[in-house]
Design a protein around this nucleic acid. Structure first.
Lengths: 93, 93
DNA sequence: CCCTAGTGGGGTAATTGGGGGA
DNA sequence: TGTGTCCCAATTACCCCACTAG
């Protein structure tokens, strides 16, 4: 994997997350996402990093709820990585 | 490759289900619906999954209601009538 | 050289998240 | 049991204008 990550523009990342490009800029400013700056000051994001965020953060039961587990229904039994520390690296709160 | 599903905000999903955004949040917290979190902590829901839930409740999912579980999970037999035009999921602005 | 589109920065309003109680 | 509503704090969306990217 030679870093074949393509660089995405804020608008691309914003469309992926369904947020405003400005919000993506704030993530980079807050250090929540890696950003590469162009000589002009614009930012570029790595596709691998964006994809990791999209699928890794909330990866939950994408499968339909099957009845085969009628044995019992653990509400939170997913490997969802429970307190995954979704983020606030800085104990902001 | 992508399922082609856009991401919806809690408010959008809440409007589709006619419930409060808080309720939608609880569904995600309970693992009943897939949720993708933004680096900021907000949630995004997949349009395909929301639609599957909306259409599935009132239409034909031939999925048989299994034994004891049926007792545990009562089907909402209300005249939800989602089959008709509830609202254009295309609330994109 | 000029042009269009996108991006950045700051500020303000609206939405969202989490907990608690009805 | 499940949902609606209250609190507060954080995050996000849209406004302006100026500059970069191609």
């Amino acid at each position: 994997m030679d870093t074949g990550d393509r660089l995405l523009t804020p608008g691309e990342v914003a469309a992926l997350f369904r947020v405003d490009p400005k919000t993506v800029t704030r993530w980079a400013a807050a250090g929540r996402i890696g950003s590469i700056r162009t000589p002009g000051g614009h930012r570029r994001f790595r596709e691998s990093e964006v994809r990791a965020l999209l699928e890794g953060e909330g990866a939950a039961v994408v499968e339909e709820m099957r009845e085969d587990d009628a044995n019992n229904r653990p509400r939170n039994a997913g490997p969802t990585n429970p307190g995954t520390s979704y983020g606030p690296p800085n104990g902001l709160r």
